[in-house]
Design a protein around this nucleic acid. Structure first.
Lengths: 333, 333
DNA sequence: CGCGCTGTGGCAAGCGATTGCCAAAAGTTG
DNA sequence: CAACTTTTGGCAATCGCTTGCCACAGCGCG
């Protein structure tokens, strides 16, 4: 419970025989106070077990030493890496980390931002479902950093999926595939668009027929319908919007007796936990998601002290790489 | 960025032609103010886009509407369910959710608690690595709720593993196994002890020889050494401290050409993501981890307003159930 | 008609820090 | 040694909100 009485800066001041302001300075602004007094004050503070109140500090100074991360869906293991990376970085900087799930809803994101605005120094928006315009407007009032999303002029950390998508297509082409299907994710998903464009372009360059199906829910259960939809197209290769969906596809294809990669090759994105031990193991585009979380926190911290509203356009692009496993193989026939 | 000037309670007061205290009361304490004035004030507040400052509220009233959850290891998917459940419940109550990873270290837990003490209403300790005594002392000063851990006199939400462990042993006995090995988790882990005791007792009752090996790191990589250690014992059944370890064991056994469940049966705990699609799929003790997270938040909220330090001894015990899959089968010979 | 009760609203004192401004003390310089 | 500059510490206002206490008005009642 909240203990009866915490020791405050005033207790320390009284005990040390100085003014509260001196204690404050000794703590935050060492050079503003004489070395000897400082030692003394610090000693007393230590002895009294003084701990500053983050709330009081924040109220007065405006700095909260807190960031909030908004994530659309916690069920998706894809985000764990990002969350971990962000939390680690924040924690290392002594920054408190607030986590909030927005359940795939842009409205929810807005509500949370509104609610937390006064208590944080900035927001990490992971795979935000909001429109570019909305985000852009929010950036006017709040300190934002985007993860796996780009909006003109805003700081972001994204794991590349354009180059990686091209690698996927090249991989499939080299195996003799002539047609592929992209199983698309939620249509508000920015990366879904990026991936499709990159796949589409590369496919055209390499003379492969590429079509898009969906959107499908980016979950294992979404794979059932997706797999069936694929089968009627007759394509020999499937690229799923993420590994969850891919795993669902594998499962459904197995049920239907379709050989992978004998008849159909399957590729995913993210290299989530389990991608290496499902059957067949999944060829997938892996990227440093935790690094993305880490970088985003750094971008936020960089801008924390800035005075002008809009942050400079810092973008971090992290490389991805294709991990080839058993779910892709030569095109049949 | 933090916008130039937020509208405060005073702006509303001036605009509405009342005192700030009246605005405050209209907002928090509806019955303390005349219905008409209240409507009026609320209208003005709405019109001005007033949002209360959680910091100011917290500083003055002591209520922060925030809880912090301390988790030993975010890499472990086991915790995802708990985190999700807790976040959902907190969010539903309009409570801000702080997440902090303590990297399997009791010291880290203490540090975090110390640091956050003034900014939260309570702590959720998930699978805490701290000693009973330390936790007990902390409870003197802080509002705590434990997840998957019991300490005399403190509120806790745990997923039963005693009954479940007995089910595991019965399952193995029914398959004709006469010896089993428990691969133990970190020795500070309370559940590890619980599980071993339950397994041990049940085994004795059923005339099965049970031994304990370890501790092993509760991760996939820990499974390598664990599997090898099992093989030298000659036991026909392995119960791993959690699914990660079990999956590691499966992998190592496959490498060594040991048939599962032909030669050795393997059981895990938690039924994490992937337990159903690894090969062979894993028999495991499943439990409502998200429910545990949810309940723990509720316990915290119940105690939030209490005056005496120690909370009443509320314990929530959630049932687990054995999910039988392909990794267990009849004892060889 | 006078008295006390209840319903409402305002005043002002905090909550625990930070920080601009000022004054005293100490150090510098010619 | 006087005139100045620099260091160092204190005062008090402030951040935005809550809440104990008081005052006033309207009301019921004997």
């Amino acid at each position: 419970m909240n203990s009866p009485k915490r020791t405050t800066i005033y207790d320390v001041a009284r005990e040390a025989g100085v003014a509260a302001s001196t204690v404050s300075r000794a703590l935050r602004n060492p050079r503003r106070v004489n070395a000897a007094t400082r030692e003394h004050v610090l000693g007393v503070a230590e002895r009294l077990g003084y701990r500053p109140s983050p709330l009081a500090t924040a109220l007065q100074s405006g700095r909260t030493a807190t960031v909030a991360m908004l994530v659309p869906d916690i069920t998706n293991p894809h985000f764990f890496g990002t969350i971990r990376g962000a939390e680690r970085r924040a924690s290392a900087a002594g920054i408190t980390f607030i986590l909030s799930y927005t359940e795939e809803s842009a409205d929810n994101e807005l509500t949370q931002i509104e609610r937390l605005a006064r208590s944080v120094d900035g927001f990490l928006l992971a795979s935000s479902r909001m429109s570019d315009e909305t985000i852009w407007e929010l950036a006017e009032e709040h300190n934002l950093a985007l993860v796996n999303r780009e909006v003109r002029g805003l700081p972001s950390a994204v794991v590349d999926s354009r180059v990686g998508s091209r690698q996927i297509v090249e991989h499939l082409a080299s195996l003799g595939h002539e047609s592929m299907v992209y199983l698309s994710g939620p249509h508000q998903s920015w990366v879904a668009g990026e991936r499709w464009h990159a796949l589409h372009d590369s496919a055209r360059n390499l003379g492969i027929r590429a079509t898009r199906l969906g959107p499908f829910p980016p979950k294992v259960v979404g794979g059932g319908a997706a797999a069936d939809a694929v089968l009627v197209t007759g394509a020999t290769a499937v690229v799923a919007h993420n590994d969850l969906l891919a795993i669902g596809v594998l499962r459904r294809l197995a049920e239907r007796g379709v050989a992978v990669p004998g008849q159909v090759s399957v590729v995913g994105y993210d290299d989530i936990f389990g991608a290496d031990f499902c059957v067949p193991s999944l060829t997938t585009l892996a990227g440093p998601q935790d690094e993305a979380g880490r970088s985003a926190v750094e971008l936020l911290l960089e801008n924390r002290s800035r005075s002008t509203a809009r942050a400079p356009d810092r973008r971090v692009m992290l490389p991805s790489h294709l991990v080839i496993r058993e779910s892709t193989g030569p095109a049949p026939g």
